[in-house]
Write a protein that binds this DNA or RNA. Structure first.
Lengths: 157, 157
DNA sequence: CATACATTCTCTAGTGGCTAGAGGATCAAG
DNA sequence: CTTGATCCTCTAGCCACTAGAGAATGTATG
């Protein structure tokens, strides 16, 4: 395996798509690599390792900023890893919250589907269920309370 | 309760934020309401019901386009509801997939955290785990296969 | 060597589902 | 009459990419 590879080979080797590699460079997650005399990027093994790290962390749902923090910490191996540990724990808590939320959702969807008599739209219980919030598991909103904290967005899986 | 309410009252009554109501109007999910002579929107009970429907469906993770489809179907109550049923079933399958994916992720995060000896970064197993893909549950990529279907993004919960 | 096709470059714009802010008009209460 | 809340439109920003244009190189084949 060659020491310096093109962006296409790097994409192949790491599973990160070519435009995404360039995107990571543009947001400073990946250092600007040296170029050939015809201006093409050349990546070495450390870059590939960094890309694999980023990809894996993204697959695990870590945000770009969290990955940036981990990469910064990684560059200072003499520091204690409490921060990374805390990051992972926060993320785990978030994942757990999302799972339980999805579980409730799944149950409600199943109930909706079971209620559907496969008749006409006029009798469809799914639509009815979606119209009347009080039929479902969500707690009723207090008259002045603001629900939907609008947090925890933008992550996949 | 008044028959025609301002956008702020509508937001209060439905739990959909004011800018979000305007956004829904801009993308055609909500019809353009009549206005006062000073150009302010006036919503009636059917609009509020529609907004509650949209909000609930969004909370359940349905995409805007799916909601649009349901609202269109809702307007033709003589049609069979097979489409809505299929929509809900597809969505349920998606939710189930996301849950199992998150479950795997949760297990890996727990393992990572358990491996962290809370020592120095140099010895942090979390970073190590994230660097070496072969340590984790994901199947190894075939040399020419494209993983990460990049589908199922953009939904909350 | 010529040609064809693949890869790469930079740049801009689009995605979804909102959210934030500017700058101005209007309303309700004291 | 003044203050502050609410409303209007419009534009831009968010995240993490993805898609496409248009041009320049690289590689494989005849």
């Amino acid at each position: 395996m060659p020491n310096d590879v093109s962006i296409g080979r790097a994409a192949e080797a790491t599973g990160v798509k070519v435009p995404t590699i360039r995107y990571y460079e543009s947001v400073g997650l990946l250092p600007r690599p040296p170029r050939t005399e015809s201006n093409r990027r050349l990546y070495g093994e450390p870059d590939l390792a960094r890309l694999r790290f980023i990809r894996h962390a993204r697959e695990l749902g870590f945000e770009i900023e969290a990955i940036r923090a981990m990469l910064d910490l990684q560059a200072r191996p003499e520091l204690p890893c409490a921060e990374i540990d805390a990051l992972a724990r926060r993320h785990l808590a978030d994942v757990t919250r999302r799972i339980s939320s999805l579980d409730g959702l799944k149950r409600e969807l199943e109930r909706m589907i079971n209620c559907c008599r496969r008749g006409r739209v006029a009798d469809c219980r799914i639509i009815e269920t979606l119209q009347h919030h009080e039929l479902c598991r969500h707690h009723r909103p207090a008259p002045d309370a603001r629900r939907r904290p609008t947090k925890g967005r933008g992550q996949r899986q």
